[in-house]
């Protein structure tokens, strides 16, 4: 059994130690808000926060997490910054197909926690998740809006 802290709760899971967090979330815990996109940390659809930092959960073995706190999209509105990001996403109507947006919202929330007033360069450096609908400009606008 491996124990991890997810969205404030301790969860015990019976999986192999090299299992990526993404599949513990999706398959073992049924938390499907976090998305599988590429499995090689290239697209960012699986982004979660680990101690407030954006990480790509498809390449994060469950046994490497230890006592770090995982936050996922499922509880994003319980986070003050996350809630602001979601409201900006809704106000600016960012998502199209929406599949990458769980990861985009998590990456944006992590950015704003670290850098509350990001410059365009900060946004470019932090927001490397792919979006096949091409909502990149709306994402950047929404981050600026959430920053206030």
């Amino acid at each position: 059994m491996i124990e991890v802290t997810i969205n404030g709760g301790r969860r015990r899971v019976d999986v192999e130690p090299d299992t990526p967090l993404l599949f513990v979330l999706r398959d073992t815990l049924g938390m499907t808000g976090t998305k599988y996109g590429c499995g090689i940390a290239a697209c960012g659809a699986c982004t979660v926060m680990m101690d407030g930092q954006a990480v790509r959960s498809c390449q994060l073995p469950i046994d490497s997490i230890g006592g770090a706190k995982i936050q996922t999209i499922d509880a994003i509105e319980e986070d003050d910054v996350g809630r602001r990001v979601v409201e900006a996403w809704v106000d600016l109507q960012v998502p199209q197909c929406g599949y990458c947006q769980s990861g985009q919202v998590m990456a944006a929330t992590a950015l704003l926690k670290e850098t509350p007033q990001p410059t365009d360069d900060d946004i470019a450096a932090a927001m490397t998740n792919l979006c096949r609908c091409g909502t990149y400009n709306m994402i950047a606008d929404a981050i600026r809006k959430a920053a206030g």
Binding site: D74, V86, W89, V105
Partner: peptide, 12 residues
């Protein structure tokens, strides 16, 4: 506003 935007912004 699109009807599905909030659900798509919150993983629902």
């Amino acid at each position: 506003p699109r009807l599905d935007v909030r659900d798509k912004s919150t993983g629902r």
